[in-house]
């Protein structure tokens, strides 16, 4: 099958893919603000969304500085179309209930925790520095999501049911995180990028431990046919980007 995007072969493209994950995840979390189950959680979700947005900005800024002509973080966030976004489909789909959001955050943060932990040793000093800062943030996100998944999984019969349902819905989208087909092998071999497959074991081990403690059953593997990293997304991303980009695109050339 022909993919939209060529394989990622440069530091800039790699940074953009990681930034897209963070930006899209942040945008979905932002939808919770003023809707969270308790006001303390509005603040907590706001913190997590801000961390992710900050990671996206640093990665876009770096990516934009490497291209000729240089591009700004906003060029990359606001003036690329759906098919040019390389985020995993896990983060783009519509928010369901709070259980879906926390299960998804648990998966994303567990992945980012392992990813940034290794990326902090990248031969690319800027990527390494961004990762070293981000790894502390996502470690907190992972713990926050873990606390909630434990409470929801082992809370009431209703919360258990909702969380198990959320897990069944999110699980097919997990394997995409470990698929390295979109990444030119040279980028990994040079020590710039982290091989996605190398993250599978530690991420799944962590998730299994949490699910077990939360009295949740790991769903059967049933990977979704998806290639977000190659620009083939779900329908949800187009709508998310429409909302994110429309104002900036309505005033081309304007500064804000």
């Amino acid at each position: 099958m022909r993919s939209t995007c060529e394989a990622v072969a440069t530091e800039a493209e790699y940074a953009v893919a990681l930034a897209d994950d963070a930006l899209v995840a942040s945008q979905r979390l932002v939808e919770w603000v003023a809707r969270a189950p308790q006001i303390e959680e509005d603040v907590a979700i706001g913190n997590i969304a801000l961390d992710l947005l900050g990671q996206a900005r640093l990665l876009y800024q770096y990516a934009g500085s490497l291209t000729d002509p240089p591009r700004t973080e906003d060029d990359l966030a606001y003036f690329r179309d759906e098919r040019a976004f390389r985020n995993v489909c896990l983060v783009e789909r519509e928010n369901g209930d709070f259980a879906v959001t926390m299960v998804r955050l648990l998966v994303l943060a567990a992945y980012q925790r392992e990813l940034y932990d290794r990326l902090a040793r990248s031969v690319d000093p800027t990527l390494a520095a961004i990762a070293a800062k981000a790894v502390k943030e996502v470690a907190y996100h992972r713990d926050h999501a873990r606390q909630w998944v434990l409470r929801l999984g082992d809370g009431t019969p209703e919360s258990h049911r909702r969380t198990q349902t959320a897990l069944e819905a999110e699980w097919p989208w997990v394997s995409e995180l470990f698929d390295g087909g979109w990444l030119a092998p040279a980028l990994v071999e040079r020590g710039v990028a982290v091989a996605p497959a190398s993250l599978e074991e530690p991420v799944l081990a962590f998730l299994r431990e949490v699910l077990d403690e939360a009295t949740l059953a790991e769903p059967d593997p049933r990977p979704a046919v998806t290639a977000g990293r190659e620009g083939r997304h779900t329908e949800a991303l187009g709508h998310l980007l429409t909302e994110l980009q429309h104002l900036a695109r309505s005033h081309p050339g304007a500064s804000w």
Binding site: Q38, E40, V43, A44, N47, D143, H144, Q147, R151
Partner: peptide, 20 residues
Amino acid sequence: SIHASDAAMALRNARDVYTR
């Protein structure tokens, strides 16, 4: 003060609310 169901959540809520 903050509200939380238990000590672990109380610490996290306090962190988010009072140390931004």
